[in-house]
């Protein structure tokens, strides 16, 4: 059995390379599209979480509290639902939205909804890391809210925002593989159908190694750009 089992992982002639490239591409595009969507959504939510925590007075204070409470609750709830359950939970919604529950596009709503709250908390933290004195200095110069958001909050926390995107993107790569088991495309689906279903261990190995490589590349790009942008201590 020993030699046979080992050999079954390296029978590269049994791999359909056209399928391999198609699935790799699907994994990459699903990951990129949802990471971009998560980044935008997460920054918006993070900004809301951060801004509604700032001290205010009067009527605005009550609205701030309400909005903060609602967004916080949503973020916490969606963050605690396991991804695989979220996909199932979202099936009707996905169907209504994209018209189908299988294929790479169908995985997007679940990917985005489960990763965005995760990233939103990281964004909020990144903004809180900024020295409050710097925000106050901008206020003292007469900056308005939009200028503070663009020129101080987003700009000063950019290294942290990028590190957060890297971590989130890597989590999303893992999620795409999971989504594959219930019909979304990509390497996860390929490994599940061809590797597990058709008992082709080589496909499983190739899919695994490819995912590791994609993760490594993602990590490398993320780390390098965060490092390049971070001027705090060089």
């Amino acid at each position: 059995m020993g030699t046979n089992t080992w050999a079954s992982y390296f029978n590269f002639s049994a791999v359909n390379w056209v399928d391999f490239w198609a699935n790799t591409w699907e994994t990459i595009s699903m990951t990129l599209i949802s990471t971009i969507a998560v980044a935008i959504l997460g920054i918006l939510l993070g900004l809301i979480l951060f801004e509604t925590k700032q001290k205010t007075t009067g009527k605005i204070m009550i609205w701030s509290k309400v909005i903060n409470w609602v967004v916080s609750a949503l973020v916490n709830i969606f963050r605690s639902i396991p991804f695989i359950i979220l996909i199932v939970l979202l099936l009707p919604f996905t169907k209504a939205l994209v018209g189908s529950i299988i294929g790479p596009v169908a995985a997007l709503p679940a990917l985005i909804i489960s990763a965005a709250p995760f990233y939103a908390r990281m964004v909020e933290l990144a903004f809180r890391e900024i020295d409050y004195g710097v925000i106050e200095a901008a206020e003292a110069m007469g900056a308005n809210k939009i200028q503070i958001i663009w020129k101080v909050l987003l700009r000063e926390s950019l290294p942290a925002l990028i590190s957060g995107v890297t971590v989130t993107g890597i989590t999303i790569i893992g999620y795409t593989a999971m989504a594959g088991t219930i019909g979304a495309g990509g390497l996860g689906n390929w490994a599940f159908i061809e590797g597990y279903g058709a008992n082709n261990n080589t496909v499983t190995l190739v899919a695994t190694v490819t995912i590791i490589i994609i993760v490594a590349i993602f990590q490398l790009i993320g780390d390098q750009s965060a490092k390049l942008i971070d001027k705090r201590n060089n």
């Binding site: 020295d131 004195g133 200095a137 003292a140 007469g142 200028q147 020129k151 700009r155 000063e156």
Partner: peptide, 29 residues
């Protein structure tokens, strides 16, 4: 506020900006 300059104990400069860029910040505003 633009007519009132303020300096702080802990400087409160923007880490992400160079010296000139920090000085230009209030002018951008």
């Amino acid at each position: 506020r633009q007519k009132i300059g303020m300096i702080f104990q802990h400087f409160n400069l923007l880490w992400s900006r160079t010296v000139v860029e920090n000085i230009m910040f209030p002018l951008e505003i």
